[in-house]
Nucleic acid binder design. Structure first.
Lengths: 196, 196
DNA sequence: ACTCGTTCTTGAACTAGATTAAGTTTTTTC
DNA sequence: GAAAAAACTTAATCTAGTTCAAGAACGAGT
């Protein structure tokens, strides 16, 4: 019988990267907490220290920055089975430049900096898990830089909607435009062109 | 007396992030090897598996991708005290999309995938070190995406040369242009404008 | 079902940066 | 130290994407 139904997606995710015994699940369950939040909930605010790390079970988060001209630039989305935090702020416990906010009603798992350190002390194997996770995220972001430099906005949109067709439906278009690095007006034009 | 003079910069670097006893240095010294290479040496080639991870003691590496139109797009530079590898290829042992090449005569420390796994087994604390390193690199690359989206080429160049004034002298301008995401011609114009 | 706020669309005028091509300067090599 | 190769500059033309402005469609709450 499973004592930690909410943790299941995370445990499965961890086991894709490192072995995890049943005893090791105990401290995990003690230190990580489920949290259900409505759309638009702000989890971490620019200017404040980011104290928590979030694992998305279901839903969607965005990490964005306030630009000089008063807009919001979306740097990252997190959907099912992604960890999200401001790594810099979280690790150094310095004020964050980013804001993390829900873009849909979402089911999360949350762990604080303090509890994560305790967890890593108790289950050192997880250092490896988190290393492998970040390595993937880093690789992905380098590839993203390559695409930003070498593809037109239209090509990036095409590729993105081929890779995440359902996702394009889920978030407002102006957020997609922000993430892809162009204006909502331009996205509108791209879509108009494709319709015929 | 120091038995491992070449490892000193790495050991100092590691100790900024995690404690490291003298006994733990022994496996480190046994598995990591110094390597001195001339300018333009190719360390890892697109299409082949990237078997090694490089720590730059002195010099400079670049990681780039061959674009469809036959150019080279520089994704990352590595200078003193940076690790460089194609994380995706190295970790999955799948063919790499990137090429890693020296841009100056360089002094490196090299470790193979196999030896790294052995090292991590012997000194598990290093999992944490490598995690913290990649987290920083990941944060930096997200911030870079923000700058690419929200600053003009000229602003990016200005900021880059303020942050790394010596570095701008060291590498050819067309590489800088490639890294910053515009053409060498445009960089030329920026510089002409600044001269007066 | 109506309303208010949010999101999406369209078009005209504009600009940062690309492209092409030729010429110049600097560096490397024999 | 001459010749070849690599790196940098300049200028004219062109285009992907921005900005601004105004209107249309959608959606959630009462």
């Amino acid at each position: 019988m499973d004592m930690t139904p909410q943790l299941t997606p995370l445990i499965q995710h961890i086991r894709k990267f490192v072995p995890l015994t049943d005893e090791e699940i105990t401290p995990l369950a003690a230190l990580i907490h489920p949290k259900t939040i409505p759309n638009k909930t702000i989890l971490s605010r620019a200017g404040e220290v980011c104290h928590e790390k979030y694992f998305v079970i279901k839903g969607c988060l965005r990490l964005f920055i306030h630009t000089d001209d008063g807009n919001e630039q979306i740097i990252q989305f997190a959907i099912d089975n992604w960890w999200m935090t401001d790594y810099m702020s979280f690790e150094m416990q310095k004020p964050s430049t980013f804001t993390i906010q829900a873009v849909e009603p979402s089911q999360l798992l949350v762990i604080t900096k303090m509890d994560l350190e305790e967890l890593l002390a108790k289950v050192p194997r997880l250092e490896r898990y988190f290393r492998l996770i970040v390595e993937r995220a880093y690789s992905a972001s380098l590839t993203r830089i390559h695409f930003i430099y070498n593809q037109s906005g239209e090509e990036r949109y095409g590729q993105f909607s081929r890779m995440f067709p359902e996702f394009v439906q889920r978030v407002p278009q102006y957020m997609l435009a922000s993430y892809l690095g162009f204006t909502p007006e331009f996205l509108s034009k791209i879509r108009a062109k494709r319709k015929d």
